[in-house]
């Protein structure tokens, strides 16, 4: 682990004052927060998703339930009504885990659309690529140009890598808001 000072993005510090109001949010986070304190402080607060904004279905299938059938499906599907984003989570046998995970992923997707470069996932991806980049630099100072090219590649890779983190399966059926596309996004 490099010293934390290396991880800090001074320009983002001001945002941290308002950012640690996590506890009261409807999305359950604790089990999934994997970032260290240094990074967490710089992240904007998680997006609050109102229950009225989402339609939840358990992909329950038809037919009788209760004692008559012993289902193993614990898949949860969330649809965010304002944006049309659909998140499906069937990673765990625990429906309660899947519900929470789906809400967390949905929050991240919405945030990416709304905040673009300032979203938590984008910041995390940048942090990750920075870490990688600085490690690369040390290793191969001589091949500076090469390292920079590599770091640029890493940014792209990491955005995908971030999604996989925690091995949560999801399907984002990319319905973008056409009007939002030009105006927002950082």
């Amino acid at each position: 682990m490099p010293p934390t000072t290396l991880l800090r993005l001074p320009s983002l510090r001001p945002a941290s004052a308002s950012s640690v109001i996590r506890n009261g949010l409807p999305v359950c986070l604790r089990a999934f927060t994997t970032t260290g304190i240094g990074l967490a402080k710089q992240l904007p607060p998680r997006r609050v998703i109102l229950d009225s904004e989402i339609e939840e279905s358990f992909l329950k299938g038809s037919g009788p339930g209760g004692q008559k059938i012993n289902k193993t499906s614990s898949a949860v599907q969330l649809k965010h009504l304002p944006t049309g984003i659909v998140i499906k989570c069937q990673e765990s046998r625990s429906r309660s885990y899947n519900r929470k995970a789906a809400r967390r992923i949905l929050g991240e997707r919405i945030e990416e659309i709304e905040l673009g470069e300032q979203s938590r996932t984008a910041i995390k991806a940048r942090e990750k690529s920075k870490k990688k980049a600085s490690a690369e630099k040390k290793k191969r100072r001589k091949y500076k140009e090469l390292a920079e090219a590599k770091a640029r590649e890493d940014v792209e890779e990491d955005v995908e890598g971030e999604v996989e983190e925690g091995a949560i399966e999801h399907e984002v059926q990319a319905e973008r808001l056409p009007a939002e596309e030009g105006s927002k996004g950082g």
Binding site: N70, T72, S74, S92, R93, S94, R95, S96, Y97
Partner: peptide, 14 residues
């Protein structure tokens, strides 16, 4: 054979 008997458990809420 039900998956829950094979795995020995089922999730019930949390």
């Amino acid at each position: 054979k039900p998956l829950q008997y094979l795995l020995g458990s089922e999730y019930f809420g949390d």
